[in-house]
């Protein structure tokens, strides 16, 4: 594990709210996360957990008028980007952090040729390169025929579009690629191809990746570490092998049961009962408490501090079931470095 690499992305207790007609929505409620140079990290959560909001916050892409970072810090390669103006964001996006999105059709401009969409990134971030040649290189890098530079998005299949979108992001020459549900809109075989491609590219380019997904299987195959996010809070994090080996938080356990299609005593598929919470409420305690099979009195009262679990310092959880670690602050700090 790359213990010594510096962090490329750090989120430090970020609180982000959306102002809506129905009132204020707390989309991120103290989310912390670290991605080191060259590392592949998964961010797992169900719909509405705040994972896409987190990803967009890293590039200042949440709607500027209705969203606000209330507290916390976002650092990209050590630079604080929490309070950038829109003009400063324009200068900061794309490099060193670039992003690919979920639906490869709607996220490509339908009336612009693929090659031009890639060329725009190159002209913006590496203007001294020979653009046409570089477009060809990038298209081949994502394993598409270079003739596709002249194609329009509607002429490509779903998997090809995702590769094209990937080429648009790679043209920014990022050190961190954020992939927001990059395979959700694709069929299973195509998913596997895209994941294999992402792995190849990371090795070839030495690029870090933050992979956002609701699919634990994808994290298992592609990530070294993972964070489990729920209602805008990170509930559990650690090395993939540790979390997969011994999931600690009842929510994570529930996710694993659902992902493995486990059945309960009556033979029904295991699900997590109830609904994700309404993010408009000011929740004091653990957001998962109302749905948690092991909820206790404390759970509703306050959110617990992190507990570093016994199996090395590579796995931590925020749950009252586990005794808070005495030396929690330092241990958790060190865990962030792990």
């Amino acid at each position: 594990m790359p213990q010594t690499k510096p962090p490329i992305l750090q989120l430090d207790d970020v609180r982000l709210t959306f102002r809506t007609r129905a009132g204020t929505v707390r989309a991120l409620n103290g989310a912390s996360l670290t991605v080191h140079e060259g590392e592949a990290v998964g961010l797992v959560g169900e719909s509405g957990s705040g994972k896409s909001t987190l990803a967009r916050a890293v590039l200042g892409l949440n709607p500027e008028r209705s969203s606000r970072i209330e507290a916390g810090r976002i650092l990209i390669a050590g630079r604080d980007v929490t309070r950038l103006s829109q003009a400063e964001w324009e200068a900061a996006r794309g490099h060193p952090v670039a992003m690919v999105f979920q639906d490869p059709l709607s996220f490509l401009n339908p009336i612009m040729r693929i090659g031009r969409q890639i060329a725009e990134s190159i002209e913006r971030h590496a203007p001294d390169r020979r653009v046409e040649q570089r477009v060809g290189e990038l298209i081949e890098l994502v394993k598409l025929p270079s003739s596709l530079a002249r194609a329009y998005p509607h002429e490509l299949s779903g998997g090809m579009r995702q590769r094209a979108l990937l080429a648009v992001a790679l043209a920014c020459e990022p050190r961190l690629l954020i992939a927001d549900e990059p395979t959700t809109a694709l069929d299973v075989t195509t998913q596997a191809e895209i994941l294999a491609l992402l792995r190849d590219l990371r090795e070839k380019l030495g690029m870090a990746m933050l992979l956002i997904t609701h699919d634990l299987g994808i994290v298992a195959s592609a990530c070294e570490r993972l964070y489990v996010i729920y209602a805008g809070r990170v509930l559990e994090w650690g090395r993939a092998q540790d979390v997969f080996g011994a999931p600690a938080h009842p929510y994570t356990v529930g996710l694993f049961h659902a992902a493995r299609a486990d059945r309960d005593a009556q033979g029904r598929f295991a699900t997590i009962g109830g609904e994700p919470p309404d993010l408009g409420e000011t929740a004091q305690g653990c957001p998962f408490a109302p749905r948690c099979p092991k909820a206790m009195a404390e759970c509703a009262r306050a959110m617990p501090h992190a507990s570093v679990l016994a199996d090395g310092e590579t796995h931590a959880v925020r749950c009252w079931l586990y005794p808070p670690t005495r030396e929690s602050e330092t241990a958790v700090e060190r865990l962030g470095e792990a």
């Binding site: 900061a92 996006r93 709607s106 725009e120 913006r124």
Partner: peptide
């Protein structure tokens, strides 16, 4: 959505 991609590129 493609507007978000264009912004994310840094345009």
């Amino acid at each position: 959505d493609f507007v978000l991609t264009a912004k994310a590129k840094g345009l």
